[in-house]
Design a protein around this nucleic acid. Sequence first.
DNA 1: TTTCATGTTCAGCA
DNA 2: GTGCTGAACATGAA
Length: 263
Amino acid sequence: MPELPEVETYRKYLDRYAIGKRISAAAHIDSYLLKKALDPAGLAADLEDRIITSSNRHGKYVFLEISGPKFLILHFGMTGYPEYLEDCRDIPAHTRLLLEFDGSCLALVDTRRLGMIYLYDDINSFLDDKKPGPDALSISMDMFIERLSKRKKPVKSAIMDQSIIAGIGNLYADEILFQSHIHPLSACSHIDREKYNIMYKKMRHVLALAVEKHADIKKYPQDWLLSCRGKCGACPHCGSSLKIIKVGGRTAYFCPGRQKLYS
DNA sequence: TTTCATGTTCAGCA
DNA sequence: GTGCTGAACATGAA
């Protein structure tokens, strides 16, 4: 479930289990995930005998710095996650990249294969290529308002647009709008500044608390939409039934009684 | 069997 | 050029 809180949780997991490790070999490489003309043999050769030295994150991307230096850049798609293995003989199904250390292993597992793997010499050239917007937990309120308020598209599509703000996906977009009392179809250009202030604070609150809870939905407050989405069907605040619509091709849950449409 | 799913990308259109 | 929409991608669960 990789949106910003999940990806940050994975980054911390990698910090714990991969930093300082020497890569003795890379195996189980699925070329479908390799981008930028990477090929399995070339990637394996580039990774071999390197040490993983640090990690960073921008939006939904994790950057693993390896001695050289180079940067192994991971995107977890819709179903990806890292898994550390004490015993390399027990490789999980759907492993798309396996980094072998001296005795242990790190698997990148991704059932649907929508994840992405890049290797870059530096992070800035990667950011120049992909041009993601500012990270959702780093952006200032002024920048947040500036980047959103001129858009004409529905606010939900805008906050999920990685080139506007990086890190928010379908589930957290619904949660942020739910807590901000904004209808997902509201036009960005019609939301007033005061409401943007609220949305900004709710965005930070939702993402920060989700990171603190290690993106474990079971630990989220009961009055969050995420604790309820797809299960209870009723708004955890007012009890009226949640509505399900499509916004920008994605399923949106919201409470029509509490979320105002700006149009 | 069909539909849907937390991801991005890109062709096509106004 | 800008900005937006919807289909496509790969796979499994309901």
